[in-house]
Simulated scan of single mutants.
Amino acid sequence: MKKYIVLIAAILIASCSSKPSLQKYIVERSESPGFVVLDLGSSIINTDKVALSVADKEALESFEKLNVLVFKKDTLNENKFDDESAKVKTILNDEAYQELIKYGGADKSAIVYFVGNENAIDEFVLYAAQRETGFAIVRVIGDNMNPNQVLRLVSLLQKSKFDFEQLKPLQDILK
């Protein structure tokens, strides 16, 4: 019995990693000045009055939620931009995040990452930064997604009765 307790304790300690993660980063910044965080569930895609194909249904079933973090750079936090973007880049350099697409240069850039393998993606991450205005992280979280399903979700979002009031906090900070 004692061996089992020691084994369970060892597993619990090993699973509590102190390694930084994107989720931890977003949660820690959710109450910080200059940051806005939005968590949107799958209900953002209202498909009540939209005819869905089998592929549409599969895409919806693979989607769980969307996390958005925005850091708006201003005169009060100019130095913070470099520190915070370096922290995000360090997290995204972890082997779990595989780079899919990269765009831009030093002043403007966008990179799309994924977690999982090409046919069973659990997370897509878009990191976009502009030196003058700040950066944003968008996490599309799901289960066994593929790139076509994410594109289909974007299309469904456009067709659905999306409530843009859910994005009001982002609009307010970006003004």
Rank of each mutant, 00 (worst) to 15 (best):
V115M: 15
N119H: 07
Y103V: 15
F114Q: 11
Y113G: 09
V138E: 03
V115T: 14
G134L: 01
G134P: 01
A110Y: 03
N93W: 08
A106W: 06
Q130H: 14
T90L: 11
F124D: 04
L100P: 11
K102D: 15
G116R: 05
A96T: 13
F135K: 01
K89D: 13
A86S: 07
E132N: 09
G116L: 11
N93Q: 08
E99N: 13
V112N: 05
D122W: 09
K108N: 10
A110F: 04
K108Q: 11
A128H: 14
K87L: 02
K102F: 14
K87Q: 05
S85Y: 13
I101Y: 03
I91P: 04
D122Y: 08
S109V: 04
N117D: 09
F135N: 01
L126E: 06
A110P: 03
V125K: 00
D122V: 08
G134W: 01
L92Y: 00
K89V: 13
I111M: 15
E132D: 11
A110L: 06
Y113W: 11
G116N: 10
A129P: 12
K108L: 08
K89G: 10
Y127A: 04
D94R: 02
L100D: 09
A106C: 12
K102A: 15
S109A: 05
G116A: 11
Y97W: 06
I137L: 02
I137Q: 00
F124Y: 05
I91F: 10
Y97I: 05
L126Q: 03
A110C: 08
I121M: 00
K102N: 14
K87A: 03
Y127R: 06
A96R: 09
G116K: 09
G116I: 12
A120T: 09
F114W: 08
E123N: 07
I137W: 01
V112H: 03
E84T: 12
Y113E: 09
L92E: 01
V115P: 08
A136K: 01
F124C: 07
Y97R: 02
V138T: 10
L100S: 10
E84W: 10
D94A: 02
S109T: 07
A136G: 09
D122M: 12
A86I: 07
G105M: 04
I111S: 15
E95M: 14
Y103E: 15
Y127C: 03
E95N: 14
D107H: 15
S109W: 00
A110S: 07
V125R: 02
A96S: 10
I121H: 00
V125F: 02
E84P: 11
S109H: 04
S109E: 04
A120E: 05
E123L: 07
A129K: 06
A128F: 14
E132S: 10
L92H: 01
A106S: 13
S109L: 04
T90G: 07
E123V: 06
Y127Q: 07
K89R: 14
A106V: 14
E84R: 07
A136Y: 02
Y97D: 05
A120Q: 04
A86M: 06
Q98F: 12
G116V: 10
I121L: 02
D122T: 13
Y103T: 15
D94M: 02
G105E: 08
E99D: 13
L126Y: 03
L92C: 02
E118N: 14
T90R: 09
L92W: 01
L126V: 10
V112M: 05
I91L: 12
N117L: 12
K108M: 06
K89E: 12
G134R: 00
Y127E: 05
Q98C: 09
N93I: 06
Y127W: 11
E118P: 13
E99A: 11
